[in-house]
Design a protein around this nucleic acid. Structure first.
Length: 251
DNA sequence: AACCAGGACGTGA
DNA sequence: TCACGTCATGGT
């Protein structure tokens, strides 16, 4: 078994199933915080159960860009209160109201626009799943957001790479510190079975691990992964990058 | 009171 | 391609 898969199992054993993506818990028809009691759904991969939840995940993926989840969550709750977490109602929402609702997630000018841009794309899909290229063509949707949407909203086995993934696994010696998104993604794709459940858990587990060991004031060199699995990127092989450039990568 | 959060885009070299 | 700068609120 490849170390990247061993590490996955270790994280799973340590932290347990994460139950991503966080969804609204509805108590008495009122929106409550995601992740509270019924919000997360550890071990249940049947979500999203409907288009409402599917769209909620997409909106959340945009709102949480470079932002703590609690802030994106508050923005979602505001939208939910306005009954605007649905494509049609969101498009009829005045720009001012949208920005106000999205405010706690930060970058409210940009994120209001991003959500609108995506919603337009979402409507044009008429229920079918978008391709990665279609998502990337939307203004405001980059690599990570596109892959998060594909993986969590559409259950397509695409490995999500975030800043934590790069930090942790470059520290461990599995990828270059300056590796690009696609490069990191390809390494995981190559060694981790293309199982949507595993991909969902792995990404969530990486975030959890980072929260526990990579926060400020914490020493990531003391984390259990670093002690166990750290390896020097000694074996260097030459590979062709996506742009056709030859570059050395750790193998 | 800095520093950072489950990024993405625009710009000038 | 590369290296910055910009966007913005809220928690620690």
């Amino acid at each position: 078994m490849h170390p990247l898969l061993i590490i996955y199992h270790e994280l799973l054993q340590r932290y347990g199933k994460q139950g991503w993506w966080p969804l609204f818990a509805c108590v008495g028809g009122n929106p409550t915080k995601t992740g509270s009691l019924q919000g997360y759904h550890p071990g249940d991969y049947s979500y999203p159960k409907n288009e409402r939840q599917q769209f909620e995940i997409c909106a959340g993926a945009i709102l949480t860009q470079n932002t703590a989840w609690v802030n994106a969550e508050q923005a979602l709750i505001n939208l939910r209160t306005l009954r605007a977490v649905t494509p049609k109602s969101l498009m009829t929402l005045p720009d001012q109201a949208l920005k106000k609702a999205v405010m706690p997630a930060g970058y409210f000018n940009q994120k209001a626009k991003k959500i609108r841009e995506f919603t337009q794309c979402y409507l044009s899909l008429q229920g079918r799943a978008p391709t990665r290229e279609e998502l990337l063509a939307v203004w405001g949707i980059g690599n990570e957001t596109a892959d998060s949407i594909l993986l969590y909203a559409y259950k397509i086995p695409v490995f999500v790479v975030d800043a934590y993934t790069k930090r942790i696994f470059s520290n461990l010696g599995f990828v270059d510190a300056d590796a690009e998104y696609d490069e990191v993604q390809e390494i995981f794709t190559r060694h981790v079975p293309a199982d949507m459940k595993i991909y969902q858990e792995y990404h969530a587990l990486i975030v959890e691990h980072a929260k526990r060991h990579y926060g400020r004031g914490l020493d990531w060199k003391q984390c259990p992964l670093y002690r166990k699995y750290r390896r020097a990127p000694e074996k260097i092989s030459l590979r062709w990058g996506s742009a056709g450039s030859l570059r050395a990568v750790a193998w």
